[in-house]
């Protein structure tokens, strides 16, 4: 609880003001295109290419959102510049939540186990194996895509949740690498104390290392959750079936239908805005948790 004393009393200086201005600028540049998504989603489809220099939604309408949520018939959708293919938003939302939650839970836990071994335990071949894991990050996805797809087919896992989750469920090189670096960065002292108290390795991992790394674990889990949420090509190939189709795959119907065609901007942006809500909520809720965890671990 030494935080209160860490900072020297803030004196308003020119540098601080400049820093704030720079920070505000970063925020603005960050936010504007995201705002543009919302603005387009709320605009009338006929105005989209016409009034491009207007900051607020043109011809304000909620039709795009209603269309994505399936509140119009196919004919009405087509008349509104959309496609006739309906999207079952709530089902796809559920599927996205299932896939992202279970995948990230498995991935984080198993990656943490091996990352701990790589960072703390001694065993022959450790560094070589770790470097091998790292190399997996450098393999272009094009190479593994088709073999993995065929494997999933052979397992009869096409159009199943486990098929979508399988490749990342036990590890990704990224998560193992991330957690290993964090385990390296945290203090050994508590673990050493536990060892002297006679605790076994799994016990230390479970009771000491994991609680200490909650900030890192939750940060990673959130990041991976979102990455999974936004993943497209793999679930497109493996999970075409309605029952397991995730949101990103469903949103693709708003992209251009023909080689020359333009995307259905209104539908795409409204769909994106809607699919953004769950990830944003998760980030804000669990992101706060992560911050609190940092403050309560009490070792700094």
């Amino acid at each position: 609880m030494s935080r209160a004393h860490t900072r020297t009393a803030p004196t308003i200086q020119l540098a601080t003001i400049l820093a704030w201005i720079a920070f505000a600028l970063v925020m603005l540049v960050t936010l504007f295109p995201v705002y543009w998504v919302l603005r387009t989603a709320l605009s009338d489809y006929k105005e989209i290419y016409v009034q491009t220099f207007v900051l607020w939604p043109v011809g304000f309408t909620l039709d795009n959102f209603k269309r994505v949520l399936g509140m119009f018939s196919a004919e009405q959708s087509v008349a509104m510049g959309g496609t006739a293919t309906g999207i079952n938003f709530w089902l796809y939302l559920r599927n996205s939540i299932i896939v992202s939650t279970f995948l990230v839970a498995g991935q984080t836990f198993f990656s943490a186990m091996s990352a701990y071994a790589f960072a703390r335990l001694r065993f022959p071949g450790r560094d070589q194996l770790f470097f091998l894991y790292l190399t997996a990050m450098m393999i272009p996805g094009v190479v593994t895509l088709i073999p993995n797809f065929i494997l999933i087919r052979d397992l009869k896992w096409l159009d199943t949740f486990q098929g979508i989750m399988a490749p990342g469920f036990l590890m990704t090189p990224f998560t193992v690498f991330f957690l290993r670096q964090f385990f390296l960065g945290i203090n050994h002292e508590l673990e050493e104390a536990a060892t002297l108290d006679g605790a076994s390795i799994p016990m230390i991992f479970w009771r000491v290392a994991l609680p200490l790394s909650i900030p890192a674990l939750s940060t990673l889990a959130i990041l991976q959750f979102i990455a999974t949420w936004n993943d497209y090509l793999w679930p497109f190939l493996v999970g075409k079936n309605e029952a397991v189709r995730v949101l990103t795959v469903a949103l693709a119907i708003f992209q251009s239908q023909t080689p020359q065609g333009a995307p259905d901007w209104g539908g795409l942006m409204a769909g994106t805005a809607l699919s953004l809500v769950p990830t944003l909520v998760i980030f804000l809720v669990f992101g706060r948790r992560a911050v609190n965890a940092i403050q309560f671990t009490g070792f700094r």
Binding site: M113, S114, A117, L121, L129, G168, L170
Partner: peptide
Amino acid sequence: YAWAFVAPSLIGFLVFFA
């Protein structure tokens, strides 16, 4: 213990990457 800790991720690594 270390190998036991690494085992699940090793399976994932072998099957889907290596």
